[in-house]
Simulated scan of single mutants.
Amino acid sequence: MTSPIDPTGLGGTLADVVAALGRAQAPSGDQSEQEPTIGRGEAADGRVRVRAVLPGRIENLELDPSVLRLSGEEFARAIESAVNMALADLQGRAVATAGAADLGALTDQLKDIQFNAERQFTKLTVSLVEAQEQLTRRAGDR
């Protein structure tokens, strides 16, 4: 007679996945959770510097005095370029941060899956053992 299927293998695998996701979600020691997301941009060889913050606002605009020697059109393009770079940088950082938050939701979903899979697999194993015992009894009755 074969032994019943052991459901701990499936549970162990899912537990490993949940643990790995938890480790990946844990904040690194280099970055504080309270640190705001900031985008940075530069133009005109670093003479125009911009800092952008969520939800897409310009927090700071720094101009080197030498940038005032540019023509009005060049000056406007430098500011536009630096602002666009800062906003693009901010967007990239915000998407990366949002990805980490989604990982937390995924971890919770995997925990639910692990719980339900273990429960269902145990039910299946019990049903298979009962069916096997019934077949054995019927074969003995003949």
Rank of each mutant, 00 (worst) to 15 (best):
T13V: 02
T37R: 10
G46N: 13
S28D: 15
A20C: 08
L54K: 06
R49T: 14
L54H: 06
L54C: 00
A20D: 14
E35P: 00
A26Y: 05
L61G: 07
I38W: 06
V17Y: 06
Q25V: 09
Q31N: 06
D30Y: 03
A15N: 08
D16G: 08
V17W: 04
R49C: 08
E42D: 14
R47S: 13
E59N: 11
G22Y: 06
R51K: 15
G41H: 01
A26W: 07
G12E: 09
D30Q: 11
A43V: 08
R23H: 12
P27I: 02
G29I: 04
Q31Y: 04
P36E: 11
P55W: 03
V17S: 06
S28T: 15
L61Q: 04
E62T: 09
A24M: 12
D30H: 06
A15G: 11
A20N: 14
I38H: 02
P55A: 09
A15V: 00
T37K: 06
S28C: 12
R40W: 06
A52V: 05
D30E: 13
L54W: 02
A43L: 07
I58Y: 04
D45W: 13
S32D: 05
P27R: 07
G56I: 04
A19T: 10
R51V: 13
P36M: 06
V53A: 15
G29L: 09
E42K: 12
G56Q: 07
E42N: 10
N60D: 14
Q31E: 12
A15H: 05
V53F: 01
R23N: 11
L54I: 03
Q34W: 05
T13Q: 06
G56Y: 10
A20Q: 13
Q25F: 03
L54S: 12
G41Y: 02
P55Q: 07
T13M: 09
L14G: 04
R51H: 13
D45G: 14
A26P: 07
E62K: 09
E62P: 00
D16C: 03
R47P: 08
G56H: 09
R47V: 04
V50K: 02
G41S: 04
A44F: 12
L54Y: 03
G39T: 10
E33Y: 05
L61D: 05
V17R: 09
A20L: 13
R23Q: 12
G39V: 08
G56R: 10
E59P: 02
P36V: 05
L21A: 04
G22R: 12
T37A: 09
D45Y: 12
P55N: 10
Q25P: 00
R57V: 12
